[in-house]
Amino acid sequence: MPAILGALKVISVGSSGVVHVGDVLIIAPKAASKTYAGSGSFNTGDFPSTYNVVSSTNTNDQDLVDANVAGL
């Protein structure tokens, strides 16, 4: 079913991102990533306030493959 949109503003799209406006059956971007961050790293809002006396992030990963991504 068609959609009626007003103004659409796309600030940025990553290298494997998908922007689609309209009808679609399947959208399957081909990418995988891992992000490490300490406590309070991804806080959002107008006045974020975090109190972290000691923070450490374990980045040791014993897996060889976390997500198998294959393209056509």
Rank of each mutant, 00 (worst) to 15 (best):
V24S: 11
A32K: 07
G6I: 00
G14H: 01
L72F: 07
V13I: 14
A70I: 08
P48H: 04
A31W: 12
V54R: 03
I11Q: 04
S12E: 09
T50P: 03
D66P: 01
S39Y: 07
N68D: 09
S56A: 04
D23A: 15
G38V: 14
S16R: 11
P29E: 03
S41I: 01
T44R: 06
A31H: 10
A3D: 02
P48I: 10
V53W: 01
D23T: 11
I27H: 00
T44H: 13
A7G: 05
A7I: 04
N52F: 12
V54N: 07
A37L: 05
G6L: 02
V19S: 09
N52S: 13
N58A: 07
N60M: 09
D46F: 13
N52W: 04
N60P: 01
G14Y: 00
A31M: 08
K34Y: 11
V24P: 00
Y51F: 10
I4Q: 08
A37N: 09
L25E: 15
V65L: 14
S15M: 08
D63E: 08
I11F: 03
N43Y: 04
D23L: 08
K34E: 10
V18L: 10
T44P: 02
L5H: 08
K30G: 07
H20L: 09
T35D: 13
L8F: 11
T57I: 15
F42G: 14
A32T: 13
I26Q: 13
D61H: 03
A70G: 02
V53G: 02
S15E: 13
V21H: 04
L72M: 10
K9C: 00
Y36T: 07
H20F: 06
G22S: 04
S33I: 01
D61P: 00
A32F: 10
T59M: 12
A7T: 03
I4K: 03
N58S: 12
T50H: 09
S15K: 05
G22Q: 06
S16L: 05
S33V: 04
G71W: 02
G22M: 03
A67M: 05
S39C: 04
A7R: 07
